[in-house]
Design a binder for these strands. Structure first.
Lengths: 238, 238
DNA sequence: GGAGTTACGCTACGACGCGTAGCGGAATGC
DNA sequence: GCATTCCGCTACGCGTCGTAGCGTAACTCC
């Protein structure tokens, strides 16, 4: 609503996670320089960290719906106004607070496509089990269906950065000869990566947050078989 | 919070969608009799319908987060207290208001497994495009991560009732010989149905609500190929 | 070192949604 | 008739939101 009401103090009102963390995680950062803000008192990086930490711990304890800005402020030891100087609302704050969790995801080479797929499924499911992520991810996505800016923020901060996992795994499988190499005329390996990402992430989220069933070894094996060999063979397995 | 504060007036405070609609849609209804409430003035079925209609139309216009109980009440032409006599809060109300949308899903026999799968994907995606569903489905699921009763309500009213689509399609494919019949010793065709449901629903939801890409003919064909034939062949297709 | 600029903590405030209580009246079963 | 239950209405206390205004702290440029 009141995004550009007042003249922006430091050029930009909102900072991304990468600005806060000094660009230590991001590689696609637009401006490598973390905005050295020429004049005036600089924003407290300690306050930023305290706020994001407080947000995560509050999410663990009370969940998304009972999380209030006042509560986060007092936990972080800052004034409520300081929160609103950085984030427009609860949704924006939580996106940044949760985004760093997803950067912990790694995909070590396990030797085969099947092992790699099972690995990423298990890792992602474990991440979704953490209360901070579990309670807030869906809420933020829900909010973003009516807020285009928030939607873009979610995509940039969370979705886009995880596709690297699929991209890496696919390239490794191609090198091993488990998947066909990209046809030089085929214009869209990107479409396939997007598809695989939606299928894996969507299925794991749906399983653990909607259906509510456990992502245990049996489910992981079944899902991987379905992914690798399709419905016919997956139905025949024990 | 205050669920059982006062003695329940009519035996049960909450009614399910099937009670309201007189059991016209559900087949797995526990008690076929819609509680003929022995004494006193009966609850207005017209008010129930007006409230649920008002909820859906309000969801279309303002979305989940800006939806208020007072707003729904005045739209429906009922008092706010009447709302709270039937539903404990916004989440419960919206679950019931949205659940009926999912009952419209049908899966006509299109002659082949591939055509059936593509059909269910397209239908489900079209449903998610409706603003009432789009904005509220994720919000309710998010809320349910910290509310076990709500979670059960979502599962019963939405999730469980859609698995029939997968079950039907699978049986038809088995009859056609496109899928192997259930091994008599294999104890769990149910696990496979659950898996397929999570994969299809999860992928479509993730595609349209998280990634934000279109569920167009190309995506549907690619996803179907992946489902039927697995990663290897899906990667080779144009 | 001083001047200008920006961020911070604090307090207070209006606006709004929530969920409940209490009333008189209306619709049913006995 | 009488008891029972629902309805519409008004009013209320409570908590959260997001902002304004103030004095003060930190930093840059001259």
């Amino acid at each position: 609503m009141s995004a550009q009401g007042a003249p922006p103090p430091h050029g930009v009102i909102r900072l991304t996670v990468r600005d806060v963390l000094g660009g230590m995680v991001g590689a696609v950062c637009a401006s490598a320089v973390p905005v050295p803000h020429r004049r005036g008192r600089p924003r407290s990086a300690a306050a930023d960290r305290a706020i994001l930490d407080a947000t995560r711990s509050a999410l663990v304890e009370v969940g998304w719906s009972r999380l209030t800005m006042s509560q986060v402020a007092s936990r972080a030891g800052v004034a409520k106004t300081t929160l609103y100087r950085r984030w427009a609302g609860k949704s924006e704050l939580v996106v940044d607070a949760v985004a760093v969790l997803f950067d912990e995801l790694e995909l070590p080479d396990r030797g085969s496509l099947r092992a790699d797929v099972e690995g990423v499924i298990v890792s992602f499911a474990a991440l979704l089990e953490r209360p901070e992520a579990k309670t807030s991810l869906m809420a933020v996505i829900a909010e973003s269906t009516y807020d285009e800016a928030l939607r873009a923020r979610v995509r940039e901060a969370i979705v886009e950065r995880q596709k690297r996992l699929v991209l890496d795994g696919r390239r490794r499988a191609q090198r091993r000869g488990e998947l066909p190499a990209d046809a030089p005329d085929s214009a869209e390996p990107e479409a396939i990566v997007d598809l695989i990402f939606d299928v894996i992430a969507g299925a794991v989220v749906h399983r653990s947050l909607v259906s509510g069933g456990p992502v245990d070894a049996g489910w992981v094996r079944g899902f991987t078989t379905l992914l690798l060999e399709g419905l016919g063979r997956a139905s025949a397995q024990p």
